[in-house]
Design a binder for these strands. Structure first.
Length: 488
RNA sequence: GGCGGCGUAGCCAAGUGGCUAAGGCAGUGGUCUGCAAAACCAUUAUUCAUCGGUUCAAAUCCGAUCGCCGCCUCCA
């Protein structure tokens, strides 16, 4: 009935209930817009898309905010390299991001605020922090004073002393404590600049999320999410800022998803081992990527490989094949015919929704939920295979309603959205277009083969079949004649 | 060094105290076929990194060991 979510803050799975009945407020840290997004970013958006879809499926109203960081050091550096403005650069990659989201088939968030459009709110929050004794200004910069926030480290489960011992902190004379972090940075000549009580400058990275979540969701809200790498320092600092400014608890539940890895190493800009979303979508349909992402639990690392994508594609084909074949079955059955369905298989189909929901309620276990879908597919296939020439009314009803349920549930993950017959046809067409043989040539060869088969010249018939197979054309002999399809 | 996580069949991946250790891919066997292919069905872990411990009962809890990964610096 209720959803349980693993909360980073407590380190445990907790039964979830929103602060405001029936209405969930969710803030997710979005991208810094200075480059194309890679599949690690894709996983993030996909995971939260699935979570939001599921919560809405459960009947909640969900306000989903995902920000853009459109001003920071990396953007300034990249804009300079490209001889453009930070604004142009950021907008260009925000547009690219929106294109990627559309290609992936994600539902847009309720709001997508940008840091630069919320400067007054950011300044107000810094003023609050100074007034409350949690921040100090030095020569046009403003820093957060971590020593004054007793609970600093509560999210990432570390304490100031341990972090100091880690000692990979750059020395900054202006800071009272090396762990203090910038809320406002004074601008150097040529850098973008906004007026503030401390002089011209720009916001630090962490403060924008505190200011925007407060503006759009309030001081306290339900869920805050992002990648595991954001736990420290970004989210730790957000808590410190927001709670020190408001005196109220910040996000109740923290969701952090795992990384995408390549050969078991984190995909990252610095390692240069990343693949962009558009590179992947050139090779694979979006649903294949979605299938791949959701076949692993969101907190587990996800290792990207060609093999994994091929497996995902094969799995998706299996689902679509099943649904396509059922869709071609008649709607009306024979009321006098005996049912061909076994009790066990009927239960597998009728209990699908219940099992799916149970899996998803358990910390959005999409991998298990998909397992249940496949379980139902097997049952549908078994029944379908056992169907007599004039199938029973009850069997057809069961198959059609089972297929409908599968598509409804899969839609939560953004899967099986396309008509399955169309999916298969498009896939074939795409491959035919790349084929090194024309349809006319195929037809000619098939005619020749049919003649050979009539004469029982099996050697020649097999020879032609092998010849076509070399071109990836598979043929299928049946009582109604020979058909062909492209090997997929 | 501090903190966190992971190690389940050939590969991927659920399961976190007790019914037969989900599901997918690949493989093998079968149905079908002139033989095939496709599709479908069946089948594939006495065992969950290793070693101890707790318990009537552990993949699941505790401890140790080995291996891998992440955060502590920009990062989804």
């Amino acid at each position: 009935m209720t959803v349980s979510i693993y909360n980073t803050k407590s380190g445990k799975k907790e039964v979830f209930s929103p602060l405001e009945k029936g209405h969930i407020k969710l803030y997710v840290c979005g991208i810094t817009a200075y480059d194309f997004c890679h599949i690690g970013h894709a996983r993030s958006t996909l995971v939260f898309d699935m979570i939001v879809n599921y919560l809405r499926y459960k009947g909640y109203k969900v306000t989903y905010v995902r920000n853009f960081t459109d001003i920071d050091d990396k953007i300034i550096k990249r804009a300079r390299e490209q001889h453009t403005t930070t604004e142009e650069l950021a907008n260009r990659f925000i547009d690219a991001f929106h294109e990627d989201m559309k290609s992936l088939g994600n539902t847009p968030p309720t709001l997508e605020p940008k840091a630069t459009e919320n400067i007054p709110e950011i300044i107000k929050m810094i003023e609050d922090l100074i007034a409350n004794g949690f921040a100090y200004a030095v020569d046009g910069d403003v820093y957060y004073k971590v020593a004054n926030f007793d609970e600093y480290g509560k999210l990432s489960r570390r304490n100031l002393d341990d972090m100091m011992a880690g000692a990979r902190i750059s020395i900054n004379e202006q800071k009272q404590n090396p762990m203090d972090f910038a809320l406002w940075k004074s601008s150097k000549p040529g850098e973008p600049v906004w007026d503030s009580p401390w002089g011209g400058g720009r916001p630090g990275w962490h403060i924008e999320c505190s200011a925007m979540s407060r503006k759009y969701l309030g001081d306290s809200f339900d869920i805050h999410g992002g990648g595991k790498d954001l736990i420290f320092p970004h989210h730790e600092n957000e808590i410190a800022q927001s709670e020190a400014a408001s005196g109220k608890p910040f996000a109740a539940t923290w969701i952090h998803h795992g990384f995408v890895t390549i050969k078991d190493e984190k995909m990252s800009k610095s390692l240069g081992n990343f693949l962009t979303i558009r590179e992947i979508l050139e090779k694979y349909p979006a649903e294949v990527l979605r299938f791949f992402v959701f076949s692993t639990h969101y907190r587990t690392p996800l290792d990207f490989s060609e093999t994994a994508m091929k497996d995902a594609e094969a799995g998706l084909d299996r689902l679509n094949t099943c649904l396509a074949e059922i869709s071609q079955l008649p709607k009306e059955g024979n009321p006098d015919q005996k049912s061909a369905a076994g009790k066990k298989n009927i239960t597998k189909i009728t209990s699908l929704t219940e099992r799916f929901v149970k899996a998803m309620d358990n910390d959005f276990n999409s991998a298990q939920a998909m397992g249940h879908i496949f379980d139902a597919v097997k049952a549908l296939n078994t029944i379908k295979q056992a169907l007599p020439a004039s199938p029973a009314e009850s069997d057809l009803t069961l198959l059609h309603s089972g297929a409908k349920t599968i598509r409804e549930l899969a839609a939560i993950m953004g899967l099986l959205k396309k008509d399955p017959l169309l999916y298969i046809k498009e896939k074939q067409d795409k491959i035919i277009s790349r084929l090194d043989i024309t349809e006319a040539e195929i037809d000619n060869l098939l005619q020749e083969r049919n003649k050979a088969r009539e004469q029982k010249n099996w050697a020649r018939a097999d020879e032609i079949r092998d010849q076509l197979l070399c071109h990836n054309v598979e043929i299928k002999d049946s009582s109604e004649g020979t058909t062909w399809q492209v090997k997929i």
